[in-house]
Design a protein around this nucleic acid. Structure first.
Length: 209
DNA sequence: GAGGAGATCGTCT
DNA sequence: GACGATCTCCTCT
């Protein structure tokens, strides 16, 4: 069972900088969702950066009702619906007025695993397939959003740096040994830019390349 | 185990 | 009216 000695909330300044730096720095941090009596927690193992002036970013076409959070203050949650099926979770970066964000692509489940499995409609198998099941639980933007019960209606524009928030990001002291950057996934514009960050040799990244 | 197509709907043109 | 920062299932090898 996951029992961290201490969870240090990340400050707003952590997010008030280049999304590439934020994306890299977020690796190894812990995404936490507090529900009624249980706590869902996952170690961030895969992120993608979306920059100001980035053709692949949702903010590229200008500020709209949908992408408004990306243009707002740093450290807020940006949730969008995609392909008629999935929600994806981001955090806004850069100062108020400047668009930028980081997409959470995968986490390693730490706490509330049964809750996550329920949210995903998955039945965890016995010892034999447990490892495989865990990997499928949160490895991918749509999967982890579903596991954490993220919806746009409920979770868009929440403050990740507010201790009162039921959705926040913390540092539990874990240190990443090796991080790698690769090209981003699932996009067509500016697809060649190496703004995807993963923890090297971690089994919970969404796709090995 | 790799590859392809369908699902399904909010958002912007 | 087109398309998308994805996932799952099905088929073929």
């Amino acid at each position: 069972m996951y029992s961290p000695r201490s969870l240090m909330l990340l400050p707003v300044t952590f997010f008030d900088r280049d999304p590439r730096k934020v994306a890299r720095a977020l690796l190894g941090k812990v995404l936490v969702r507090k529900t009624g009596k249980t706590m869902l927690a996952g170690r961030i193992v895969e992120t993608e950066a979306y920059l100001d002036g980035d053709p692949a970013a949702h903010s590229y076409g200008g500020r709209t009702k949908r992408n408004d959070v990306l243009f707002g203050p740093p450290g807020r949650s940006y949730v969008y619906f995609i392909y008629g099926n999935h929600f994806c979770l981001n955090v806004s970066c850069l100062p108020d007025g400047v668009p930028g964000g980081v997409l959470f692509r995968a986490v390693e489940p730490l706490a509330g695993i049964e809750e996550m499995a329920r949210a995903r409609g998955v039945v965890l198998q016995g010892a034999g397939d447990l490892r495989t099941d865990l990997q499928r639980l949160t490895s991918g933007p749509g999967r982890m959003a579903e596991a954490f019960g993220i919806t746009r209606e409920r979770d868009n524009d929440k403050d990740f740096t507010d201790p009162q928030s039921d959705l926040f990001i913390a540092d539990d002291g874990y240190r990443v040994r090796k991080a790698v950057s690769t090209v981003r996934i699932g996009i067509t514009k500016a697809a060649e830019m190496p703004f995807r960050y993963v923890i090297a040799e971690n089994a919970f990244v969404s796709k090995l390349r």
